[in-house]
């Protein structure tokens, strides 16, 4: 118990770091994922191809490698001097967006055909059909997979700690470097992650109940 109590500030900072990292990269992943999912079902073939390429690429790249790319390739090509925080958000967000995209796409395919047909027959364009009719109905089925994607994102954010972003893995590393016994540290960090992941799954379950429609 001592390790936890003596280093409460570090643990708190790490906890907040993980939560913030998850939230911000989750937001990026959501935005990118929905856009790419839109690309994947769009009427323009090259956009479909682009979406498919995006998903294939990011799903088959190890996240550690993406972190290395964010650290050593992105600054060379785009802006040098990004903060580690921004680079971590970029890597996590882009990686997760591929999974969000797949979840949204399969959600889109669960919306009954008649809905889109009706939307088209009253003259809606593709974007209107997607935005006003299909996506709102897809949300319901997308929530469950999204919850597991966000939990995965929380766990993946640990890698950022190895790249000197302040979060829970950083705390574990710091304390074990200082020579404290690893088993209690591991347990406390594990509990911290459990708190976050349980909160996420709880929130999503709540959301699911709110969004669920009696059929």
């Amino acid at each position: 118990m001592n390790v936890l109590l003596d280093h409460l500030p570090e643990f708190r900072e790490g906890f907040i770091g993980t939560v913030l990292l998850t939230l911000s990269s989750g937001l990026l992943a959501m935005v990118l994922g929905v856009i790419v999912a839109g690309f994947r079902v769009s009427p323009v073939p090259p956009l479909r191809f682009l979406g498919a390429a995006w998903v294939t690429l990011f799903r088959n790249t190890p996240l550690t490698l993406l972190f290395l790319i964010a650290w050593f390739v992105v600054p060379v090509i785009f802006w040098p001097g990004l903060s580690p925080w921004t680079k971590a958000i970029l890597a996590l967000g882009f990686y997760t967006s591929a999974f969000v995209c797949e979840a949204v796409r399969s959600g889109i395919s669960t919306v009954p055909l008649g809905q889109a047909e009706a939307a088209r027959s009253i003259g809606m364009t593709f974007i209107q059909t997607l935005r006003l009719i299909v996506l709102p109905q897809a949300t319901r089925t997308v929530i469950a997979p999204l919850s597991s994607i966000f939990i995965a994102l929380t766990k993946n954010s640990a890698i950022a700690g190895a790249f000197s972003v302040a979060e829970l893995f950083g705390v574990q590393k710091l304390l074990s470097d200082k020579g404290f016994a690893i088993v209690p540290i591991f347990l406390f960090v594990a509990i911290a992650y459990l708190i976050i992941t349980f909160t996420i799954s709880g929130l999503f379950r709540l959301l699911e109940r709110r969004m669920g429609v009696a059929r």
Partner: peptide, 19 residues
């Protein structure tokens, strides 16, 4: 196949299953 794909994480087959 895409089931979990790589959402390393979760009950496989959640993602992309409804189809």
């Amino acid at each position: 196949a895409g089931g979990t794909g790589g959402a390393p994480e979760d009950v496989p087959g959640d993602v992309g299953m409804p189809m």
